[in-house]
Design a protein around this nucleic acid. Structure first.
Lengths: 231, 231
DNA sequence: ACAGGTACTTGACAAATATCAATCGAAATC
DNA sequence: GATTTCGATTGATATTTGTCAAGTACCTGT
């Protein structure tokens, strides 16, 4: 594996503090592959053979049941997915596909578990990562159960606006995926955008501008315990 | 702290493998308290001062936003809650209240973090616990996003029936809480029970009987990747 | 430039779900 | 035993959300 990838992975919180020898053990079985867009990486129910790390590009985590499909999360560089399944040696709960051309590192789950069993620093790093993931999903559940779709969209836009530190920005995913992520149909998302017009939200293609952020916030009522993805 | 509690806690997966001396450190600051029903233990947003362990009774984890409230989970003996917030030294995302008279052990979060930093076995146990919690919340999200309320209720009943290994059982919580947990209103839950009558679900107070489990399952389409809480 | 596909939008309609008000019924209190 | 209280139910209605069937706009590849 090229040295540049190795250095990139080593710098991740997850691997930064572990023993050199253990890191080497992990890297020995690791390979990095570039995938085209829209490639299925994982199907839910499959055994978790590899811990995946997104080095570049982006990956959609989604789930299906009874012919329906929903988007659960987007993984962007540099972070991992399928960590919980790897640790528990359990089937993946979500499927994954590339959204664009993406470079993915694949670490054999067996190796991850083996190193995890002996390297305390690695175990602690995994704890922090999992605790973060857990809290993100809990926030998501609160968003889904406590808010209407219009409120979810309004808060999503406010979060996005905060991330880009700008009241005008581009949606970084297709509206159909955004709709699935927010738990609604594409048709409903269209109408929800219309429904936010009175609060100063202007939509033109994937370009969003918020003319009066305070007005939108009065409607959306963003809450640190739902919308702050930093803790 | 009485020796019986100590032994009870020591046997938990979370504490079973750690160093004796570290366990002693943890227990030094721990106290056990009995709470009456309907007592608030934690309010969301509060700092996570204590890791809580339910020794007996049961605890409702719930969340609020904008005057609305929903139930997120029920914690039953013997397990912990507020683990992720403790580890990340972050505010609690959920509130907690006793459902009945309950014995709760309280471990100072600082001590938990200190021992976590030095005891690899403890860190590994936390990983397994958190990975489990994470997967549970993911399953919950899939349930919410991919199923209608009628389907959620049907699958809940099937899971409950499987847990008690019987086609007749008692609901172990108020219907209003069940409604909140399933993401619907109490009125809707009443109607949902009626809606399941054609599939052989009979309700009398909190007593549920399923006359034709296969018929109900054909409607509910239970799925290991949503409904199996063991992995 | 054009054709074809795909995402997005819109309108009409249907289904699901929430809300409000009233009532019922069982458990708790006096 | 009567009363009170509170959760559960029911009916009527409103709102939200989804579905279906167009039509439009945009991108892509030839």
């Amino acid at each position: 594996m090229p040295e540049t990838y190795r250095a990139e992975i080593r710098q991740l919180d997850l691997f930064a503090d572990m023993e050199d020898s253990n890191f080497e053990t992990l890297m020995r079985g690791t390979y990095v592959q570039t995938f085209p867009p829209r490639i299925d990486l994982i199907t839910e129910g499959d055994p978790s053979d590899f811990l995946h790390i997104v080095l570049s590009g982006s990956v959609d985590l989604f789930a299906c049941w009874n012919g329906r499909e929903t988007s659960m999360a987007t993984v962007r560089p540099v972070s991992t997915f399928i960590l919980a399944a790897t640790i528990r040696e359990a089937p993946n709960l979500m499927s994954a596909r590339t959204l664009e051309k993406s470079r993915i590192a694949l670490l054999p789950s067996e190796d991850v578990r083996a190193v995890f069993d002996t390297d305390g620093a690695f175990a602690r790093a995994i704890v922090r990562e999992l605790a973060q993931c857990y809290r993100t999903v809990v926030k998501n559940t609160k968003d889904l159960k406590l808010r209407t779709s219009l409120e979810r969209l309004a808060n999503y836009l406010i979060r996005h606006s905060a991330r880009t530190a700008s009241s005008e920005f581009e949606l970084n995913m297709e509206k159909r995926r955004l709709a699935a992520f927010l738990g609604m149909t594409p048709e409903n998302l269209s109408r929800a955008f219309k429904g936010l017009e009175p609060y100063g939200v202007k939509v033109s293609g994937s370009n969003i501008s918020i003319s009066d952020p305070d007005d939108l916030a009065r409607f959306a009522k963003p809450d640190l315990l739902i919308d702050d993805y930093s803790t």
